[in-house]
Amino acid sequence: MAIMHGVVLYTRPYRDNDLLVRMLTQEAGLRTFLARGAKKNNSKLAAGVQPYTLNSFEGKLPKQQEGLGYLNSIQSSHYFRTVVEDLNISAYVALIAKLIDLSFEEGQPIEDWYDKFCQALEKLDQGLDPQIITNIFEIQLLKPLGVEPNLRADPIDGQMDGQFDYSEKYNGIIAENHYYLDDNRLHLDQKTIFYLRQFSQIKLSQINQIKISPATKRSLQKVIDYIYDQQVGLKPKEKVFIQSMDRWQSDLSRLVQERNLP
């Protein structure tokens, strides 16, 4: 037995009263634990196995580093109320969790990503923009997913200042004097390029407020979705849900505006 620290990503039913708890742990990366009796009303584990709960717990890892571990007791828990109770925020957190789960091997040491995820939950619980926090993860997770666009300098001559656009052909940004080399560049505005470059290297601990216009947010999401669709080939159901939610909100706003017209 050992004391470990982990954030619950999601749970799955297992038998009548048990749960399989998927965690991102500080000590052992991504792990799945069997929580016996966690579905019972009087279970002492119940509070600690809620999604996005930060736990200190007593558990056991599998002997061969494969298969299930065991979650025996919860020492302490921290519940991010705003994250869990706000549907919009929890949808974005679910996407972050899924991307982390898809990006790394079972048991791979990724303490830095554990720290980032904990910081993200804290920032979101404080009310920071969930799309932008998620966009930062989407960009920074491209490297472990096997696609790392160059967002620092033009690969042709190393230029780092000036006007840039995104080029799939050159896997990243190219400077204005090289636009002619790619007729299919994305024609992004410079604010979008600026934030893409910032997101590739910013630390969440540096972010205390977010002020980005709705137009720039839409542009950022469009190019990030393009990279995931075209270069990664990945579209989790969590992403589909967010897109559906955004369309529903847009339709609702348009309906309200139409009804308010004289």
Score class of each variant (00 low, 15 high):
Ala2Gln: 13
Ile3Thr: 15
Met4Ile: 09
Val7Asn: 02
Val7Lys: 06
Leu9Met: 07
Leu9Asn: 03
Tyr10Cys: 06
Pro13Val: 07
Pro13Met: 05
Tyr14Cys: 05
Asn17Tyr: 14
Asp18Arg: 11
Val21Met: 05
Arg22His: 15
Met23Thr: 12
Met23Tyr: 01
Ala28Lys: 13
Leu30Gly: 00
Arg31Ser: 02
Lys40Val: 07
Asn41Tyr: 01
Asn41Cys: 00
Asn42Arg: 14
Asn42Ala: 10
Lys44Pro: 03
Lys44Asp: 08
Ala46Asn: 11
Gly48Glu: 04
Tyr52Lys: 12
Thr53Asp: 02
Asn55Leu: 04
Phe57Glu: 09
Phe57Ala: 07
Gly59Tyr: 02
Gln64Leu: 12
Gly67Pro: 01
Gly67Ile: 00
Leu68Ile: 06
Leu68His: 04
Tyr70Val: 15
Tyr70Gln: 15
Asn72Met: 15
Asn72Pro: 11
Ile74Gly: 12
Gln75Asp: 15
Ser76Ile: 04
Ser76Lys: 06
His78Leu: 12
Thr82Gly: 13
Val83Asn: 08
Val83Pro: 01
Glu85Tyr: 08
Leu87Met: 13
Asn88Pro: 00
Ile89Ala: 00
Ser90Glu: 02
Val93Ala: 11
Val93Gly: 08
Ala94Met: 07
Ile96Asn: 08
Ala97Glu: 06
Ile100Asp: 03
Asp101Met: 06
Phe104Gln: 00
Glu105Tyr: 13
Glu105Asp: 12
Glu106Asp: 14
Gly107Cys: 05
Gln108Glu: 09
Ile110Glu: 05
Tyr114Cys: 14
Asp115Lys: 14
Asp115Met: 07
Phe117His: 06
Phe117Cys: 11
Cys118Ala: 11
Ala120Gln: 02
Ala120Pro: 01
Leu121Lys: 04
Glu122Leu: 12
Glu122Gln: 14
Lys123Thr: 09
Leu124Gln: 01
Gly127Arg: 02
Pro130Trp: 00
Gln131Tyr: 14
Ile132Gln: 00
Ile133Trp: 00
Thr134Gly: 08
Ile136Lys: 11
Glu138Gln: 15
Pro144Phe: 01
Leu145Met: 07
Gly146His: 05
Gly146Met: 03
Pro149Leu: 03
Asn150Trp: 00
Leu151Arg: 02
Ile156Arg: 01
Gly162Asn: 07
Phe164Gly: 09
Ser167Met: 01
Lys169Tyr: 06
Lys169Ile: 04
Glu176Asn: 10
Glu176Arg: 09
Asn177Leu: 12
Leu181Cys: 06
Leu181Gly: 03
Thr192Lys: 04
Ile193Asn: 10
Leu204Val: 06
Ser205Leu: 08
Gln206Trp: 14
Lys211Met: 13
Pro214Glu: 03
Ala215Glu: 04
Thr216Gly: 09
Lys217Ser: 11
Ser219Tyr: 04
Leu220Thr: 05
Val223Cys: 07
Ile224Ala: 10
Ile227Asn: 04
Ile227Trp: 02
Asp229Ile: 06
Gln230Pro: 06
Gln231Thr: 10
Glu238Leu: 08
Phe241His: 12
Phe241Met: 09
Trp248Gly: 10
Ser250Ile: 00
Ser250Ala: 11
Asp251Gln: 14
Ser253Gln: 13
Ser253Leu: 14
Glu258Arg: 15
Arg259Lys: 15
Arg259His: 15
